[in-house]
Design a protein around this nucleic acid. Structure first.
Length: 127
DNA sequence: AATTTTTGCAACCGCATGACA
DNA sequence: TTGTCATGCGGTTGCAAAAAT
């Protein structure tokens, strides 16, 4: 949800991930709780006249890691692959095969997942 | 306008690797 | 050495949105 993204982004931008991904959901949850209300990272619900504050990230560390690295991380670009990038991807794929992490590392601010998706949905069928 | 089909892609799964005990 | 645990990686999929009918 947008609230979960806010909590994860807020925590990562202020602290970075110093410890393990496994323990991050609890830390990010506690961090969100410590912010002054109303804070967008802390979802609020009014039920039967009572204010309910949802705390913690109800996600496993693996999901948080993937969400941050492939999507929320600010220093990455999504979509809009240029012809130059396509050329590089074709070239590297012909040399390396589906080494998406390696191929992505040769492009500017691209994730392996995005390069893989771009290949599977666009480039592959042009061959 | 309503319904069906296709497409795009974020997220999931299982496995490999490496660190550490 | 063997076992455990966290992370990185690539194949695959669920499903919402877009396109087609």
């Amino acid at each position: 949800s947008p609230e979960e993204d806010d909590a994860l982004r807020d925590y990562m931008q202020r602290h970075g991930n110093t410890g393990s991904w496994i323990t991050l959901p609890n830390k990010a949850g506690e961090f969100a709780r410590s912010l002054p209300l109303p804070c967008p990272a802390v979802p609020l619900i009014v039920l039967d006249g009572c204010l309910i504050v949802l705390v913690g990230l109800k996600r496993c560390g693996k999901s948080c890691r993937l969400r941050w690295l492939n999507y929320l991380r600010p220093d990455i670009r999504h979509g809009g692959f240029t012809d130059e990038e396509d050329t590089i991807i074709y070239s590297l794929y012909s040399q390396l095969g589906s080494k998406w992490s390696l191929i992505a590392s040769q492009l500017e601010r691209r994730t392996d997942n995005d390069v893989k998706n771009h290949w599977n949905t666009k480039l592959k069928k042009r061959l």
